[in-house]
Design a binder for these strands. Structure first.
Lengths: 344, 344
DNA sequence: TTGAAAGCGCTAACAG
DNA sequence: CTGTTAGCGCTTTCAA
């Protein structure tokens, strides 16, 4: 299955490969008549230049890789979609690497992507979301970033100086608490999230802060750690409702756990938001699909992806880019939150 | 930013590049002592062979591309995840191309992937799901498949002879209808899906068939076409409920529209499944997240992706592969379906 | 067990 | 406007 090369075209057109290359890339003037002749031959043979050969020479591949922790979590497809749309216009094709949040897989992919000479990497999840990332894992990314631009989305690598794009999650959490307090809630709980992940910590810290401003606090028994799944939300809510005195509002670490919490509450015969208010986080499509529709915080996932590619593109072309781009979260008030019941 | 090459390693180790290549690939015996020396130098310099150069020579890139119509539809991430897990073990890295179901984008990507010399392509959505695909679009894929193995997932290209992996949607739809009929439903409606897409047609045909077996029929006013979104499900259900006599059960083209239908029904004060039964299709995580949990048909999305890669891998290596692999659908009975109300 | 050398398909000086 | 030629970084005969 010999594939046709630029030489075949050149021979057939009685010109040199250089000329063919020129018409291919419009890199230099070519006589109109020969250009047309060459084009015709190219099309007739369905010739497509070999991107590998070109990349080898030009030292750029026109590829960007996105490493993310879970493509089945609806937040991430949204980010990818934003990135791809932006990237497509700029001529990039995307590798997608699902690390499952596993450091080993991340490292594995980092190596592969380096071999494949991707032009840039967008990194989400896993090591950039833990509170204390082992320094060798940080170093690995930093080393890579010397040759390959890296942008961290919604995370960080302490002391790495890597470029970051993220939503201000603390502010988002604050907005949720304020919203709840305005509705009269005084006994608020926090549900879900792994304790060692920064996304969990940041939110809890923010909740505490606002609560404190109002003379309230987040008691230890009002925090239930778990992972970020629907199942976790359900289990954790079950636990919470097993206690004698239940909170009037529950802030969930993400939309998934909120959905689980809703299910649990429903099963316990509680009305939402009449008996208990529940909030999500991320603003995934899921938050709109569920009944009642979730009050949540939009992270502008699409925008996150788009901006990541924009930054990466500038970085790739040696431009100057802000080290940090912070997106404002947006509180979306829907049906899952309501006034606190006066009687408890 | 000169990156280190096999020459740099060779020079430092006082051997030829051939020897370095040999230790890199274990392609020929190398004296143990020199192997170790070379390895040491490789590691010290953090040398990583350039996959582009290697691919150019070997005519294989170790990449697979997946073209799909909508990564934000939870069905597709599941397929991707299955594919990636299988592919990773086999040494493949994945390009992900979201075509948005647009033929133009599909063509664009097809071209790009050919240039990039991907080893194989997994094609979903868009042109392979329409009832009558223009022959030039079919031809385009067929032409490509001459050089690059292509596997069609849940779709087909009439007369193309391309390899296919798909769930038996007709059987799935039949299972749903039988389930509903057993529950005593006699007036059943079908909701959602674009009329010209085969996935819609196949299901409607199957519904009709089973209905007919029971002396029932699917009247024209019991079919509401739309797209595959939550919004469509809602709108369509609104329409359906606006009619004087409402059906006792509604079969939705996918989980998304079912969720929309549920929302609409709830807003109309209908209890599910007490007043009306609603079914989804696909068995996405969403179907479990919603309240009430959706009775749906699992398409084994993960398995679909996994099998696609398996087939592709064999195809790439010149093996023989069954032209068609059919997966059995699985009816998942949950809370959104119940006995038909005797009074209507 | 090792080295020399010929490409893989393309681009980019450089020289007409 | 066009051709010649030297690589990009690697693998693989063919010889030694």
């Amino acid at each position: 299955m010999k594939s046709v090369t630029i030489y075949d075209i050149a021979r057939e057109a009685n010109v040199s490969v250089a000329t063919v290359s020129r018409v291919l890339n419009n890199s230099a003037p070519v006589k109109e008549s020969t250009r047309r002749r060459i084009m015709e031959i190219i099309e007739r043979n369905r010739f497509q230049p070999n991107a590998l050969a070109r990349s080898l020479l030009k030292k750029e591949t026109g590829t960007i890789a996105m490493i993310l922790p879970d493509i089945t979590n609806p937040f991430f497809p949204e980010v990818f979609w934003g990135a791809e749309n932006m990237g497509r216009e700029l001529g990039y094709t995307f590798f997608l690497c699902d690390s499952a949040g596993d450091y080993k897989r991340e490292s594995e992919y980092l190596g592969i992507l380096r071999e494949r000479r991707v032009d840039g990497i967008i990194f989400l999840g896993g090591r950039i979301n833990v509170a204390n990332c082992p320094s060798d894992l940080v170093q690995e990314v930093v080393d890579l970033s010397v040759h390959t631009p890296v942008v961290l989305v919604n995370g960080q690598l302490a002391g790495s100086g890597l470029h970051r794009i993220f939503t201000d999650e603390a502010k988002g959490a604050e907005m949720v608490v304020r919203h709840l307090i305005e509705l009269g809630h005084r006994d608020i709980a926090f549900l879900g999230g792994l304790e060692y992940m920064s996304t969990t910590r940041v939110k809890i810290r923010a909740v505490r802060k606002v609560l404190k401003e109002h003379g309230l606090e987040l008691a230890p028994d009002r925090i239930k750690y778990g992972d970020f799944s629907i199942q976790a939300g359900k289990t954790l809510m079950d636990e919470l409702l097993a206690s004698p005195r239940r909170p009037t509002a529950v802030i969930c670490v993400n939309d998934f756990t909120a959905v689980g919490a809703i299910k649990s509450a429903s099963e316990h015969g509680l009305g939402i938001p009449d008996d208990i208010s529940i909030t999500g986080f991320d603003g995934t499509p899921l938050s709109e699909a569920v009944i009642p529709e979730l009050t949540t915080v939009s992270q502008n996932a699409y925008e996150l992806g788009k901006l990541a590619v924009e930054s990466l593109h500038k970085l790739i072309n040696g431009g100057k880019v802000k080290k940090q781009t912070v997106l404002e979260p947006r509180l979306i008030v829907r049906k899952s939150t309501g006034p606190a019941k006066k009687v408890c």
